[in-house]
């Protein structure tokens, strides 16, 4: 009996040693020499493999960083500046600063419900619905509401608002990787600068139809009247194809266009709640003081 056990142990032990030796030599023979820096860089990255950088994944991004030797043109949106600084430190190059960005849904869902002309009953995919027809509201440019963007988001930062049927971005979670913008067949979602104190102003419409036609499908459509462009002190607003666009690099978030817009197509985000308006009087004169000179300037221009 003991004899049998001994033989078994010995045979298995000998096999183990034999394989270990073979493995050792094979590993030596086929060793892949890789820059250890790649591993270090990959370690710093968030590891979500979102593809927002345009590379196949986080490791491919790390390889690109190391092979390039600096961070020029390479940016990990989810990681932001903190990760960029860490990688720069590892690579020993200057830190590239980028403005933090966020995904913005440029469609105004407030009135869509009333204007619904049809009931979409097919495959729940915006990309497919876009090939079938204009969408439930009749607006051939706006959000289709099937949630391709929600499915594309790796960070759980974009959700459908069941009340309006359009997506809402959670700015805290959004890393501006751009996956939702790419998934949207109608290019409704845009990456815009987060803005100072997270305050931003944007045209919440992408409809390029003539004003009267656009209004038929949505009361809050941009009609391309150009009033916003006229009041803008920074010349940040351009109107092309009946559609106004605010250049976020120039915009100072003064909100003149917001009040000017006749269809309420321009939205402001991150400002103190509108409760300020009817509330404390003492602040009102201060606000006037700031506003008057700018308004005069604009009028003078006209």
């Amino acid at each position: 009996m003991t004899h049998d056990i001994l033989i078994a142990v010995m045979v298995l032990g000998a096999l183990g040693i034999l394989f270990a030796v073979v493995l050792y030599f094979v590993a030596q023979k086929f060793k892949v020499v890789e820059d250890p820096l790649i591993d270090e860089v990959a370690e710093v990255l968030p590891g979500a493999n979102c593809g927002g950088c345009g590379k196949a994944g986080c490791r491919a991004f790390a390889e690109a960083c190391v092979s390039q030797g600096n961070m020029e043109g390479l940016r990990c949106a989810p990681g932001g500046d903190a990760v960029a600084a860490k990688i720069s430190a590892l690579l020993g190059c200057a830190v590239e600063q980028g403005e933090p960005q966020v995904a913005v849904v440029r469609c105004n869902p407030a009135n869509c419900g009333d204007k619904r002309r049809s009931n979409y009953d097919g495959l729940k995919s915006c990309a497919f619905q876009n090939t079938v027809y204009t969408g439930e509201s009749g607006c051939p440019f706006g959000c289709l509401g099937c949630g391709d963007c929600v499915a594309a988001c790796q960070f759980d930062a974009i959700h459908m608002d069941p009340a309006t049927g359009t997506p809402v971005v959670d700015a805290d979670k959004c890393t501006a990787c751009g996956a939702c913008a790419k998934a949207c067949p109608r290019r409704v979602i845009e990456l815009r600068n987060k803005g100072k104190k997270e305050r931003r102003v944007y045209v919440s419409c992408v409809n390029k139809e003539k004003g009267a036609v656009a209004m038929k499908s949505c009361a809050n459509a941009c009609i391309g009247c150009g009033k916003c462009a006229k009041v803008c002190p920074m010349e940040a607003i351009t109107v092309v194809d009946n559609l106004s666009y605010i250049d976020y690099k120039k915009c100072i978030a003064c909100r003149k266009c917001v009040t000017e817009c006749p269809t309420k197509a321009i939205h402001d985000v991150g400002f103190p709640a509108p409760a300020v308006k009817p509330a404390p009087k003492p602040e009102a004169p201060a606000a006037e003081k700031v506003e008057i000179p700018v308004a005069e300037k604009v009028e003078a221009k006209l």
Binding site: N119, Y120, F128, V132
Partner: peptide
């Protein structure tokens, strides 16, 4: 009248 249903064929 109801809203028209739309789907692919």
């Amino acid at each position: 009248m109801n809203l028209l249903n739309i789907s692919g064929s």
